[in-house]
Amino acid sequence: MFLEAIHIILPVFIILAAIIAILLKDLLASVIALAAMSLLLSLEFFILHAPDVAIAEAAVGACLTTAIFILAIKATKRNEEEV
């Protein structure tokens, strides 16, 4: 029962974090929301009995891509421009 509830609640939070990452205008906050989505996704992989994929997702998705995005924001502008 508890596991079924987790299986429903975690994807809802993943989708919520992804929508927040799209909607935010501050790109640094958007990158942090993307990292949170990646961490929740790795938790979901762990619950689905795939610890290999969970380790790779946590290391690559939550750490390395966040570092690359933050370096890219540092080289350009922080805020999204209104078109």
Partner: peptide, 21 residues
């Protein structure tokens, strides 16, 4: 145990990136 070359290498690279940042 779960994991392998790619997963462990990604974790070590994350630690090195932490020092770089």
């Amino acid at each position: 145990t779960p994991g392998g070359g790619f997963q462990g290498g990604a974790v070590v690279a994350s630690g090195l990136v932490l020092m770089l940042i």
